[in-house]
Amino acid sequence: MAPRGIHARSTAETSLRKRHARARLFALFCAAVTWAGAALLMLLLYQISVNGFKWFDVQFLTSFPSRFPYKAGIKSALVGTLWLISLVAIISIPIGVATALYLEEFGKKGRLGRMVEINIANLAGVPSIVYGIIGLAVFVRGLGLERSLISGALTMSLLILPVIIIASREAIKVVPMTIRHAAFALGATRWQTAWSHVLPASFPGILTGVILALSRAIGETAPLIMIGALTYVAFLPEGPMDAFTALPIQIFNWVSRPQEEFHELAAGAIIVLLIVLLTMNATAIFIRHRAEKKRG
């Protein structure tokens, strides 16, 4: 066989040039599409900030909602959201982390365990509005909790529980087996091992997951509408049994009105909501980043 030069296959040469052209075109296409998509999403944020900052001032943050746009504010919505998210955190974090611990550290990895696992994965995919309906039937009507903060918090807790469980399990899974073995070899029980070694080691991961789950709860609207969180609340809730409104509900309410001023108010409330979410997400990313660095 005669040695062929790099340029010897002249017929293949032109087709190779075409193939290179196609490869470049494809790369260009993918990059362009990505940046176009990013631009669209940036447009969304831009449009919100242009409209929202018109009304954004101290008065906006400290006033109750009103029929008159210039008087309206998000005080009750903001306080309601804070109440709601605190209750959700109190309810869902212990249960979620406990479930994750049980599944990873205690439960037998048999058929039953797998069933529970599949069950949780499927719960994570149930539309939020279905949780809202369950909240309406079980908490509002069934248990007679009325349209209160606690109904909303329980509904929202059920909604984000699968997210917390899945994230916590992932965090617990990456704790090296050797740490557990070392503790067991010193005569520690399962709980002692889990409490003093597994939980601290997986803490950053769990915290990240919890923050992301809570930020989802903050933005969810549909379940709250289902359980009938009032849209006009001119007082602040003082306990879990009080009626309430929340930021996303207020936004929905204002967007649904035909007047442009209310749309701008909605944009203002969206800004507040996004700032809260952004702060939470940034915290989560920061924690994850720091934990990754520590691990090396």
């Binding site: 969304l44 919100i48 930020s215 933005g219 609207t221 967007v255 944009a267 969206i270 997400n281």
Partner: peptide, 13 residues
């Protein structure tokens, strides 16, 4: 993670 109500606002306005 942007809430869906925000997308609703974007659609309408």
């Amino acid at each position: 993670g942007i809430p869906t109500v925000v997308y609703g606002y974007f659609a309408l306005t």
